Simulated scan of single mutants.
Amino acid sequence: MAIVFDNVRSRAPLRLGLGGGGTDLADYCFHHGGVVLNATIDRYAYAHLTRHREGGIVLKADDLGTEESLPCSLDFDIRQGLCLHRAVYHHMMTEYNGGQAVPMTITTTIDVPAGSGLGASSALTVALIEAHALAMQLPLGPYDVARLAYDIERRHLGLLGGMQDQYAAAFGGFNFIEFLKDEAGVIVNPLRLRRDHLNEFESSLVICFSGQSRESADIIKDQIGGLKIYNDETLAAMHDLKQQAHRMKISILSGDIPGMADVLRESWLAKKRTAASVSNSTVDTLLEVALENGAWAGKVSGAGGGGFIMLLADPERRYGLIRKLNQHGGEASAVKLTFEGAEAWAVR
């Protein structure tokens, strides 16, 4: 399969995990079945592919200030350096280009800091796959792209994490996603929300960067450890998170945003029971400030330990809430929901 387009761009949206996060870990969902409720937002991971006229492979992560130059071959370690760039390129050339390397420059950026808890790494993997798929005219649908992104991250690279981020980035929108037990498959259920319910939810939503990036792998390792040794508290907390995702879905479908906040509060307590490292003093302080200034409830997005905090608040007090969080060292803002998944386009 030859490269058809010499200049391609792509983007994939980041996501907020509203409920059920953690039940998408293989060690849980393959045994018990998992569900998550998530929504994509107007923050993106971007990839840009161009033919390299001088014959090499150049990999760039402009937001990290990192660049690598490799010979035009597939004889490199995918687990070194910019491993997502390397692994996607290596897989696409091996599987779809007869094992032949193509001279190429691959440049990426992400709208948020590393370790944000918004699924940025998986969104980047999805964006990289989408760009390659368009350049090579491959008939990959969103399920194909999401599953491939999962395989590359979790199996090829051995990166710890769940399954929701790849599907959220590939499909986009407000989704209730089921991860069937015994690896029977994944079902993405887009929610058909009334416009007034959606507007009220979005008007209640605040995200706040804690100022601390975190290494999700350590937290996930603690959670997986609890599951593998059949830690009763970890397992019970995961069961609670799954039930709370169902309850939160019912709340958003009925437009009950304070009801969503009640479940969010319970979900945060359950999440903290899955691993001791889920919260820290900075997160606790910002959540305390938020609850004193109009927030109904909040939790850390993603595995925890830092990154972004997601809050549901009284819309009439949202402006003051954002100002207070920023005065206390957070980086808070409103956020828009998005309903398009990963996209790629050729540059003429």
Rank of each mutant, 00 (worst) to 15 (best):
L59W: 02
L14C: 06
E130H: 12
P139T: 07
D232W: 11
K299M: 12
H52R: 13
T94P: 00
T108F: 06
L160C: 03
I309A: 02
C72W: 07
P315T: 09
L118G: 01
E153D: 08
D222E: 15
G305I: 13
A168Q: 05
V206F: 04
I219A: 02
I250K: 12
S10C: 06
A295D: 09
G98C: 05
N280Q: 04
D63Y: 07
R195N: 03
N7K: 13
V188F: 08
K324H: 13
G33H: 07
G294T: 11
T50P: 00
G185Q: 09
K299R: 15
S116I: 12
H197T: 08
A61G: 03
L16W: 06
K299N: 05
I57D: 01
I252W: 06
D240W: 07
H91F: 08
T107I: 10
I250H: 13
D62M: 08
E95I: 03
E54H: 12
P190H: 09
L14K: 01
G55L: 11
D6P: 00
P13T: 11
S116Q: 04
D256H: 11
R323A: 12
R11E: 14
L241E: 04
F76P: 00
C208P: 01
N280P: 00
N189H: 14
V188A: 02
E331L: 12
L16I: 15
N38C: 08
D262F: 08
D62S: 12
A290V: 13
A290D: 10
A276I: 14
W296V: 12
P103M: 11
A245S: 14
E95Y: 03
K249Y: 08
A2V: 13
E178C: 06
M310W: 13
T108K: 01
E331K: 13
N189F: 03
E200M: 14
C83D: 04
V36Y: 04
Q164Y: 05
Q223R: 02
G255V: 14
I152L: 03
H132E: 05
L84E: 01
L287T: 07
P113D: 06
H239Y: 12
A47E: 09
D24L: 08
K336E: 14
M248G: 01
A237P: 00
G302R: 04
G173V: 11
G173C: 04
L140F: 07
T23C: 03
G119Y: 09
H197D: 09
R9E: 15
D284M: 06
M248A: 12
R194E: 15
K272Y: 05
T50F: 05
L198N: 02
L37K: 02
R323G: 02
T109D: 07
V126A: 03
G329E: 10
G161P: 00
L59P: 00
N280W: 10
R51E: 09
G21E: 10
Y230W: 08
L148R: 00
G158R: 00
F171H: 04
A261C: 08
K271I: 08
I250N: 10
S213Y: 02
N189I: 05
A275D: 08
V206T: 10
S279C: 06
L82V: 10
W345Q: 08
P258H: 06
